[in-house]
Write a protein that binds this DNA or RNA. Structure first.
Lengths: 253, 253
DNA sequence: GACATAATTCCGGTATAGTGGAATAATAAT
DNA sequence: ATTATTATTCCACTATACCGGAATTATGTC
């Protein structure tokens, strides 16, 4: 990929993680043959790797006959990550409070490789429920958080991180890159960003950064509100998020 | 390991997972050199693997200068596991209820490879707090749950799973294997087990199995109570756990 | 500063992991 | 049953990942 030297074989470890990511993406048990097809990888290789991953508990037999899914060991490793950074504890209580005061859905979002994802969510008690599935990987530019998470990067870094096709919105429209970059700069300076969702037509998204001591944006706290609510309570929500942003950034490692 | 054919090189993927497990065990960022030493693995190999794992987001730079720890991608994979099996949701509400009614610490425990571990915990509001760290890997025979989790296995399977040294208790005493196996059979038949902790001197542990449809024990719900409490409320706690055990086993996949 | 020690990168050889393809087993369709 | 289709295992070849050891760089000590 990176160097000019053309490889003829993939590294097992790369393929192994591809398998895990694929299962995470499709969210359902798959048989080795399906995985091989989906990844465009040699079947014999996938069979071998699946067995290795099963041995390690990174995958588990799912439906008794062939299909596998993510394994318990991944859960425990994830727990260890969570405990170490202690994100959940601190962030979740802040989110609870915001949702209590606003009745809106609150989210904590992070980068996951070159995609955006919702890591934590507290659902508001609105009559209709607003929420993308947590854990889904979404193109960064589609989201309000996508203006904050990359705040620390140069234009070049940003453009080399985001796959070009991710600038095409779900409707097929193309996002203006220069404008996107400008939004990032502005959001970074303001420590806040909000806009009408470009993924749906009825919500407004508020986002504020959570920064580590070095100032890098490790995640965002967001409020996802129906548009009319957002108009009515704009300043309140904005203030709540900025306050949460600052208090959480204090406690980050 | 399994076949007689002696290998001279380890597979990268095996070493990679060893690295992840090691970091989980020590719970703190490590530098590649430390990891290599701790694992008894070639340094150059570990450096290479650590870089690969960093590229994949399975590890993250921790302290700015060299040390790495478990990465975000593991957290997300763990989330996906959790969501799919939906354990947390169902189990946690049951645990909440038990702790509310008993004021004791409730745990949900699982096998993790050849060790026992606490996957979920709701702490009771006793004046002194009872809890081993969640996520720690503990020898199976040291625990009450260790009588239930292996209920579906034959003697041979059990003995080949558990490393011999795990029958040595923390104090140095040796656990009688025949007696341990007998306890497993009895616990399995009763759907319940309890005993005074052998890890500390002041608690009594209650455990009941959570079984999947096939009858295999996927985890245990446990109450960890001070000994005098345990005596006073023995029948109540026992009944609560058995009820929870049965209701949860209904809902398992 | 010089020196000692430890951490990290570099590099070439070889054991072997990843692969294509064939053989076999399982499953579905007829 | 027979056939067609698909899934899985087996096997041998070679590109390369793993590894030992040397070279380099960083870190600490005096």
């Amino acid at each position: 990929m990176k160097d000019g030297h053309e490889r003829k074989r993939a590294r097992g470890i790369d393929r192994a993680f591809d398998i895990l990511d694929h299962l995470r993406a499709v969210k359902s048990p798959q048989r080795p043959a399906d995985i091989a097809q989906a990844l465009g990888a040699p079947r014999s290789t996938i069979y071998d790797l699946v067995n290795t991953l099963l041995d390690h508990g990174m995958l588990e037999e799912a439906d008794g006959k062939g299909a596998v899914f993510l394994g318990r060991r991944l859960y425990f490793l994830g727990l260890a990550y969570d405990e170490h950074f202690d994100l959940t504890h601190k962030v979740e209580s802040v989110m609870q409070e915001i949702t209590e005061r606003s009745s809106e859905t609150t989210q904590f979002c992070m980068l996951d490789g070159d995609k955006y994802t919702v890591a934590l969510q507290v659902e508001g008690n609105r009559p209709f429920r607003i929420s993308g599935d947590i854990g889904d990987r979404t193109p960064i530019p589609w989201t309000a958080s996508g203006r904050l998470l990359l705040g620390g990067m140069s234009d070049e870094e940003i453009l080399s991180l985001i796959p070009p096709e991710d600038f095409t919105l779900p409707g097929g429209d193309r996002l203006d890159v220069a404008r996107y970059l400008a939004e990032i700069r502005k959001a970074h300076a303001a420590g806040f960003f909000s806009f009408d969702s470009i993924v749906d037509t009825f919500t407004h998204c508020f986002a504020a950064p959570v920064r580590d001591r070095a100032g890098r944006c490790v995640g965002t706290i967001c409020i996802v509100a129906p548009k009319d609510d957002a108009v009515t309570h704009y300043e309140t929500y904005r203030a709540m998020l900025i306050e949460a942003s600052e208090s959480l950034s204090q406690t980050m490692p």
